[in-house]
Structures are given as structure tokens and as C-alpha cells.
Design a protein around this nucleic acid. Structure first.
Lengths: 190, 190
DNA sequence: TGTACATCAGTGAACGCGCGTTCACTGATGTAC
DNA sequence: TGTACATCAGTGAACGCGCGTTCACTGATGTAC
């Protein structure tokens, strides 16, 4: 019937998106060229435009996928507040700090997303809404709306703290930022 | 004696650094080319290497200068905690969100600094130390050390909140993030 | 069963462009005598 | 006072390179008859 399995091209496209997510988080969006991205996916540069109309198009899909993955992580945590506490400790760990390619897209790319075109910002906005809702639901399952403010504060502090820890040249200072961040985040949860 | 006023070249160098700070914060470091930076300073590209050994060299000096400016801002605030409260409201304002070029370098560039070479990260580290110390001294003038944790939390939340507000395509959601951020920051101060 | 043709994911060379960097030169202002 | 020379901040064209993007082509697999 078909020369390739029906879903072959979709699988390839998904592989490009996932590898590009890692590369973007490691080297930045501006810092990652099409040739590198395609080579990460085991392909050559020419095939790119059979999958995406432009780099901007890829970036928007990558951001959407990365945030979807973050939301999915919440489903794997212990239920309720204990799950959030686990998340805080994992998020503000030296492992996460030292491996941005496998970590949170917001920590790696948030200020760059602020400079991206509308489609990418929209994809980020949709994902951010889900993340805030997930955190709020864990903080106050009976009335998530009341916890939105705290959820936003928790999220922004996690992101800012990890970014700061990555920008510091002094390992001791960086470790201190992570440790204080855990204390602050747990305190913020109440 | 000299063809130009003694300090002429220093003045030009300082102008390049300050204009580059604005450009970096607006378009990103990777997003700003030497020709644009020099044209911002009213010069042509060729003069760049009479002032800096490389783009990385400029970036390190810009980061150092930008953080020095941030620290200097603390001196212009009302003394003590009221000054910090003013800062929080100014920092998390729509005006600051909408004019990154004139705003906080951490909010505009923090994740990019994390990917910069050692000299730039060192410059950032030195500046961050001063900012944390300034905030801590305002939170607990009698015992700043005890307030370091809270100072770090306040700083990271401000930075993360402004970044998030800039990344959101939805103005209403973005405004909400700023408002909740002010509440959370004031609560964190205690 | 065998051969001609259609499909299409992927190849790889090439496009113009802007990047960071280099360098021979300019021209305004000084000094020497 | 006038002319030859030194200084040096800044000019602007050029360097090789990698960028995002285009396109003629390949080659593996299917269908037609």
C-alpha cells in the first residue's frame, strides 16, 4: 500500500521536535541551527522543510510539546501536596541545574520565548495556563481558584531560582541558591 | 597635547557599553550583531575592535555594568523596607514589562547568561552577590545574614515573574501574573 | 512472474545574507622647528 | 607664522563562515498490467 509505514513521517517529525527541544534548552533557540537540529534527529538539513514551513514554525511546535511534557510530569507525581514537595526538590536539584537539555523548558528558555513571534508565545501561554492550573489543583483541590496566586508565585520562583543557579560561576553560591530556593518554595506552599 | 579630550575614548567606550546593554535586553545577546551595536552608539562596525577584543569581551563588560546600575538603583530608593516595597511595585509594573531595553538585565537575559562563557558568568555572579546583599540589608539591617534566604527568594521571584509576564500572549493573564507577583513578593517579605 | 511506472521521505549542493573579525586607510588635531 | 610630520579614533570594504531556505535529484517501495 504505502512505501513506508503509515505513521513513518509523523514519527520522524516527532523525533525532530523532541531532539530540537533538548538542543534548544541546551544551546538556546538562536544558538541552534537547522543543520544541527536535523543532524540530532539523524537526518540532513534538506529534509527540514518537508516537515516544517520555517524555523519559527518548528519553535512553536517545540514549545507546545515541551510544555505538554511538563504538564504530563504532574501525573507521575504522588497525589496532592506531597507530590508538589517532591517536585520542588527535584526541580531545585544540582542534577536539574546541570542538565538543562533534559530539564524544564521555562528555566532554559523563558526570556527567549518573550522575544519570539506570536505563535510561539501563544503555544507557551496555553501550556503555562495548564501548569498553573495543575499546581493550584494540588495546593487547594477543593477550590483551585483561590490558590492561583500562590501557584503562580511557586512557579515563577522555581524558574527564577534555577536560572539564577545556572548563571552563577561560583558553585557554592549556586548550591546556596538552590537550597534557599527549596526552603522558600516550601514556605510559600504554607 | 592630545588631539581628543583625554577621556574621549573612555566616553565612547562607555557609550557603546550602555547602548549595547539596551540592545541586548531588547533583542537578546545572540540576537544583536556588532554592526547594529556600533550603529546604536553612532559609530561604524570597524571601530569595535579598538575598544573590545571580541564580542564576548563586550558582553562581559555589559553584564558587569548592567548589574552595577541595578545595585546603584537601591541607593535611590526610600530607606529600609518601604524602599523595597516601592521597588517590587515598580519592578512588577506593565511599564517595566513592556520596556525590557530600559529594565532589569536579569529579567531580560538570565537564561542566556547561563549559556555564556566564564568571564560573563563571573561578572554576573559578582553583581548578583551585591544585589542579594542589598536586599538582605533592607530586610534585616541588624542581621543581614539571616535574611539572605528571603532575599534570594524575593529576587528570583521578581525575575521569574517578569519573564513569565513577558512570555504570555494573553494580556489579561500577563496582568494577573504581575498582580499576583506583587502580592506574593510582599507576603514573602513578611 | 516480470517489467514499467508512480510515490515520496530524504539527500546534498547551492542561494543570498548577516555574522564576528581584520585591515589598509582617512582626517582631524597635535608637535617640531 | 608656516610647513612637515606624528598620533590615533574612527571608516568602510573585505575575509571566511554558518545561517535559514530552496531545489533538482535519489532510491526504496509500492502499483499496473
Amino acid at each position: 500500500m504505502v512505501r513506508y509505514a503509515k505513521e513513518h513521517k509523523q514519527v520522524t517529525r516527532q523525533r525532530i521536535i523532541e531532539k530540537a527541544g533538548q538542543r534548544f534548552k541546551q544551546d538556546g533557540i538562536d544558538g541552534s541551527g537547522i543543520s544541527t537540529l536535523m543532524s540530532d534527529a539523524g537526518l540532513t538539513n534538506g529534509a527540514f522543510y518537508a516537515h516544517f514551513t520555517s524555523k519559527d514554525d518548528l519553535v512553536a511546535h517545540v514549545v507546545a510539546e515541551e510544555l505538554r511534557t511538563q504538564v504530563a510530569r504532574y501525573g507521575t507525581l504522588r497525589p496532592g501536596r506531597p507530590g508538589l514537595e517532591d517536585l520542588i526538590r527535584e526541580y531545585l536539584s544540582p542534577e536539574h541545574r546541570d542538565h538543562p537539555g533534559l530539564g524544564c523548558p521555562s528555566a532554559a528558555l523563558l526570556d527567549e520565548v518573550g522575544r519570539c513571534e506570536a505563535g510561539t508565545k501563544q503555544a507557551y501561554t496555553d501550556g503555562a495556563r495548564d501548569i498553573v492550573a495543575e499546581i493550584a489543583a494540588r495546593l487547594a483541590p477543593e477550590d483551585p481558584k483561590s490558590a492561583r496566586g500562590t501557584a503562580i508565585g511557586l512557579f515563577t520562583m522555581l524558574v527564577g531560582t534555577l536560572q539564577l543557579s545556572r548563571a552563577l560561576a561560583d558553585g557554592k553560591f549556586s548550591d546556596e541558591v538552590l537550597e534557599r530556593g527549596i526552603e522558600n518554595a516550601l514556605a510559600l506552599m504554607g
